[in-house]
Amino acid sequence: MSMSKIVRAAADIIFVFILTFGFYIVAHGHLTPGGGFQGGAVIATGFVLLIAAYGSRALLDRFGKEWFRSSEALGLLVFIGTAFVALFLGATFFANWLANGGLIFGEAVAFGPNPGDLNTGGVIPIMNIAVGIEVLGALSLIVLYMLSGTEEGA
């Protein structure tokens, strides 16, 4: 089941921009409004657009449910793993063990409104990316499961 050629061509073009916008929201979650959940939802909307234009069969041939399932599991594992690393370093669970440390994402920021730097935030960008991966997998999976339940033989 796929829509007309106009819809498919428009979906091809818009999908790229939706994906770019979603990854921008996820990557800049510690600087601008947004974050992992919002960015993941935007990316999942892009996948749902592809499903609406081409049908779920075409998307499943390319990616498969395993892809989304493992992306969800990977996001959750990275999220909880980052929280557990703090325990091994002697801090509390969910402590920000990378902030102001000089390592990756470890630059200090000045107080007050400033343009910001991507290389700040400690574990916040890592957790944003983890939550983004998890949400994009989960929300796409919900739509895919519902479609496979309602389509006969699909």
Partner: peptide
């Protein structure tokens, strides 16, 4: 929030840290 977590977005600081 900014000096303890290093993130400029206070909402993200509260949510993730």
């Amino acid at each position: 929030g900014q000096e303890q977590t290093g993130g400029n977005n206070i909402v993200a600081d509260v949510l993730m840290d």
